[in-house]
């Protein structure tokens, strides 16, 4: 594990001066992930904030080869690039060792890109797929996605007199991905940079598909001051809302950070304007429902980790 100082000295593959919002979690995630390898990388982005804000023609923030095809096909597109590389390498027309990585938001991964991702995982391409999860369609103006948490207000699931924000729990994407029995699937958070780095290194070293779902808060959509991104991310981990875990071959579960004394979920909810309505007295039962869901999910994950031999004493 390199020191933070050494990591800071690594050449940047995405420069400053891009047009993402101040306090955006996405470029933090990208910089952390891309420090996981010193080999050349080819990046594919799904349509989304990261894509539009880093490549407004004639400018580009990317110092490595970068391709954006469309919204729902980052994984299929990267399949094509990786297969071309294998073909050319086999024929002696490509020599260097190259790593392949895709970045998609939750909309491009949990929703519209899920089929393309599933196909690519099943085919076993040698690449890393990173979902930077900011829990809604932020690029189009904060619409609910299947990654939006229960109770959150978005522009298409607003808190109204009858419907109090989103009325479904977040899709469990990591389980869906792990069910493909790929060598490596992990969940990480930008507040735990050392954990992200370890996972990224592992993902890049994995032969075959690797997947990382990284929580990347969005100050505009989550409604918090832009200098609180890391604090909000940290609270997601400390309340057990966002467990840091990894699943190898769909079988071996490891909880990377056991939160022995979790903060109540209200500690995370109250930091964000999107959950403001949940603190009205008539919505108390919703907060309780969210807490119960977190508790039960944590127990489920721990049980699966125990089955894999992890000891929580």
């Amino acid at each position: 594990m390199p020191s933070l100082k050494d990591l800071a000295k690594m050449p940047e593959r995405i420069t400053g001066g891009h047009r993402l919002c101040p306090g955006c979690g996405a470029p933090i995630a990208v910089r952390q992930i891309l420090r996981g390898t010193d080999k050349p990388v080819v990046v594919v982005c799904a349509t989304g904030c990261l894509e539009v804000a880093t490549t407004i023609y004639p400018h580009s923030a990317w110092k490595c080869p970068y391709f954006h095809n469309a919204f729902e096909n980052a994984a299929a597109t990267l399949s094509g690039i990786e297969t071309a590389y294998n073909s050319l390498k086999k024929q002696g027309r490509a020599k260097k060792e190259i790593k392949f990585v895709a970045f998609g938001g939750d909309g491009g991964t949990y929703d519209i890109g899920l089929q393309s991702l599933s196909g690519a995982l099943e085919r076993g391409h040698d690449f890393v797929y990173v979902c930077y999860d900011n829990e809604a369609y932020m690029n189009t103006g904060i619409q609910r996605s299947s990654a939006t948490p229960y109770g959150a207000a978005t522009t298409t699931s607003p808190a109204g007199k009858v419907h109090p924000g989103k009325e479904q729990f977040k899709k469990n994407l990591l389980d869906v991905v792990a069910a493909h029995e790929i060598p490596y699937a992990a969940q990480a958070c930008i507040s735990d940079w050392a954990d992200v780095l370890k996972k990224s290194q592992k993902a890049f070293e994995t032969k075959g598909p690797a997947f990382i779902n990284i929580l990347a808060p969005c100050q505009r959509g989550w409604r918090y001051p832009h200098n609180k991104t890391i604090a909000v991310a940290k609270a997601a981990v400390e309340t057990r809302f966002w467990p840091l875990l990894e699943i190898e071959y769909g079988r071996k579960w490891t909880l990377n950070r056991d939160i022995k004394t979790p903060k109540p979920i209200t500690e995370w909810l109250k930091m964000q304007g999107r959950f403001k309505h949940l603190f009205k007295p008539e919505n108390e039962h919703l907060v309780k429902k969210i807490q119960e869901h977190i508790d039960s999910e944590w127990e489920r994950i721990k049980n699966l980790c125990r089955c894999s031999g992890q000891n929580f004493d």
Binding site: T77, I81, L88
Partner: peptide, 10 residues
């Protein structure tokens, strides 16, 4: 999508 990726990779 895949042939677009492959062609973009030369």
């Amino acid at each position: 999508s895949a042939v677009v990726g492959a062609a973009a990779a030369g």
